[in-house]
């Protein structure tokens, strides 16, 4: 199988590719629609602001091809960090803008009642939500993953949430809807357990 890692000027895509290579998957870093159409799985990484991320996707003409491949054709898709947030209906970084709207919800600034530090930065443990999707994620319950973000995804439908993380408030750490898998943390920076999570998801389609 071939994985298309989408290059849209938002952060370092090379470390994701290195991890995929270590796991034995073939991948290309690309922003060509044709490559994305030909790939078996699409991976959207990214760090930086929501608004800039959407602008760049638009600029590279990637929104149509993502709509077509991910929404219509149900091609497996993994979003990481900003790549998860952009799936929302709206983002607010720095101002309110429309997102891809693949998963209903809004990305808002972390605003903890106890004034905890923002960004939420460092290793924090995952809580696997118990629902029909939880079987896949169960081995990762209470395992530490690396987070670095100032905004979080408020999902409209509870059934889309498969992983949460506690930082005074309970935040969404992972979403799943049909063929769409998304995570707020960085599996590519979370050592062996991070690699294993990526492998668990990808191997369903390999």
């Amino acid at each position: 199988m071939t994985i298309a890692i989408i290059k849209y000027g938002m952060g370092n895509v090379a470390s994701v590719q290195k991890v995929l290579k270590k796991l034995g998957y073939n991948s290309i870093i690309t922003n060509y629609a044709e490559d994305i159409r030909n790939a078996d799985l699409i991976l959207l990484p990214g760090v930086g602001s929501f608004k800039k991320g959407m602008e760049n996707l638009k600029q590279y003409g990637l929104i149509e091809v993502l709509n077509e491949e991910v929404l219509n054709k149900k091609k497996p898709f993994i979003g990481i960090c900003l790549g998860m947030q952009l799936l929302a209906t709206y983002g607010n970084e720095p101002t309110k803008v429309k997102g891809l709207n693949f998963i209903k919800g809004e990305v808002i600034k972390i605003n903890s009642p106890k004034n905890l530090r923002v960004p939420h930065l460092g290793w924090n443990s995952l809580n696997i939500v118990s629902n029909q999707k939880s079987e896949l994620y169960k081995p990762f319950n209470k395992q530490d993953f690396y987070f670095i973000h100032s905004y979080h995804f408020k999902a409209e439908a509870i059934e889309d949430v498969c992983i949460t993380v506690n930082y005074d408030l309970e935040m969404v750490a992972g979403l799943q809807k049909d063929n769409i898998y998304a995570m707020q943390f960085h599996p590519e920076k979370s050592q062996e357990v991070g690699l294993l999570l990526l492998k668990t998801i990808i191997d369903q389609y390999a």
């Binding site: 090379a14 290195k18 960085h186 920076k189 050592q191």
Partner: peptide, 8 residues
């Protein structure tokens, strides 16, 4: 380092 180490 990026190739061989996967912590930040």
């Amino acid at each position: 380092v990026a190739e061989q180490v996967n912590i930040p």
